[in-house]
Amino acid sequence: MVSASTDYGYDSKVEGGVIVSRADAAINWIRTNSMWPMPMGLACCAIELMAVGGARFDIARFGAEVMRFSPRQSDCMIVAGTVTYKMAPQVRRIYDQMAAPKWVIAMGACASSGGMYRSYATLQGVDRIVPVDVYVSGCPPRPEALLDALMKLQAKVRREPAARRLLSA
């Protein structure tokens, strides 16, 4: 990861002020620590999502407190709740409107698999319309579970070949 180098660019004026790293590490470091969520609150999971944003659980500790209701300004869509077939195209459109890089957390049983709604009206898992990075179990999940999902997503983002993707895009 990021480490100070003392033997590179020896110059008494900048000694100790030069840090050498990979572009991936720097880019991913920036991305992981300011991951602005798009709160796709569709059902009761959204209440837990609000709790995560509150002072007690405080998602701000992970740099993700800036809930953006505009897909243009968000990085991570948190699908919190039951996605009906009627809502599915809108969820996909909002995902399409988010600027890359973008990630998706499927929060709770309904978003992950349709949950207990084995019915004609419910999309059987949001991964059928958008690529999901992290699934969270629970009905609804505890706030800690969502924080854990966010940390797992951050760990995933840290491993991404960000520079190569940026150059190839």
Binding site: Y85, K86, A88, P89, R92, R93, D96, G114, Y117, R118, S119, Y120, T122, Q124, R128, I129, V130
Partner: peptide
């Protein structure tokens, strides 16, 4: 799926839900 563009993009349609014993 409602929304022909999304259906085409995702290759998804409304399916019979797996009742999984339900």
């Amino acid at each position: 799926l409602p929304g022909a563009d999304v259906a085409e993009e995702t290759g998804t349609q409304v399916v019979a839900a797996p009742m999984a014993g339900g």
